Deep mutational scan, measured.
Amino acid sequence: MTYKLILNGKTLKGETTTEAVDAATAEKVFKQYANDNGVDGEWTYDDATKAFTVTE
């Protein structure tokens, strides 16, 4: 299944996707991606759209 990450960081904005077996796996991938790019903020998840959002 495809999951999307929407980044609303102070220095990094954009979107990326990942293929994962479930939302928990996608969340781990996205949190590592955000951490690697220096984005740390409030996380939300919308199951209807399979989209995670992180806002700094």
Rank of each mutant, 00 (worst) to 15 (best):
M1C: 12
M1K: 13
M1D: 14
M1T: 14
T2H: 07
T2P: 05
T2D: 05
Y3A: 01
K4S: 06
K4T: 14
K4Q: 05
L5F: 05
I6S: 04
I6P: 01
I6M: 06
I6T: 06
I6R: 04
I6D: 03
L7A: 04
L7R: 01
L7P: 01
N8C: 10
G9M: 13
G9P: 03
G9D: 04
T11D: 10
T11Q: 10
T11C: 15
T11Y: 14
T11F: 14
T11G: 08
L12N: 08
L12H: 13
L12A: 07
K13Y: 11
K13Q: 12
K13F: 10
G14C: 14
E15H: 08
E15W: 13
T16A: 10
T16W: 15
T16K: 11
T16I: 15
T16S: 08
T17E: 09
T17S: 11
T17N: 06
T17Y: 15
T17D: 05
T18F: 11
T18N: 04
E19I: 15
E19L: 14
E19S: 11
E19T: 14
A20L: 02
A20W: 02
A20D: 03
V21L: 13
V21W: 12
D22Q: 03
D22N: 09
D22P: 00
D22S: 07
A23N: 05
A23D: 05
A23T: 09
A23R: 13
A24N: 08
A24I: 11
T25A: 14
T25R: 06
T25C: 05
T25F: 07
T25I: 07
A26K: 00
A26Y: 00
E27D: 04
E27K: 09
E27P: 00
E27A: 09
K28N: 07
K28E: 09
K28T: 09
K28S: 10
V29P: 01
V29T: 11
V29L: 11
F30W: 01
K31S: 04
K31P: 01
Q32M: 09
Q32H: 06
Y33P: 00
Y33H: 04
Y33L: 06
Y33M: 05
Y33S: 02
Y33K: 02
A34I: 06
A34T: 06
A34S: 05
A34P: 01
A34W: 03
A34G: 03
A34Q: 01
N35Y: 15
N35K: 15
D36K: 10
D36M: 11
D36P: 01
N37F: 14
N37P: 01
G38V: 04
G38D: 07
G38Q: 07
G38K: 07
G38M: 07
V39A: 03
V39P: 01
V39Q: 03
V39M: 08
D40N: 12
D40C: 14
D40R: 13
G41S: 01
G41D: 01
G41P: 01
E42P: 04
E42K: 11
E42W: 13
E42M: 12
E42Q: 11
E42D: 12
E42Y: 13
E42A: 10
W43G: 00
W43Q: 01
T44P: 00
T44V: 10
T44M: 08
T44Q: 09
Y45V: 01
Y45A: 00
D46P: 00
D46T: 04
D46Y: 03
D46K: 03
D46S: 05
D47E: 14
A48C: 08
T49E: 12
T49P: 03
T49S: 12
K50V: 03
K50C: 06
A51T: 15
A51E: 14
F52V: 01
F52M: 01
F52W: 10
T53A: 05
T53Q: 06
T53M: 10
V54Y: 03
V54S: 01
V54Q: 00
T55F: 07
T55A: 05
T55V: 08
T55S: 09
E56H: 07
E56L: 08
E56Q: 10
E56P: 06
E56Y: 11
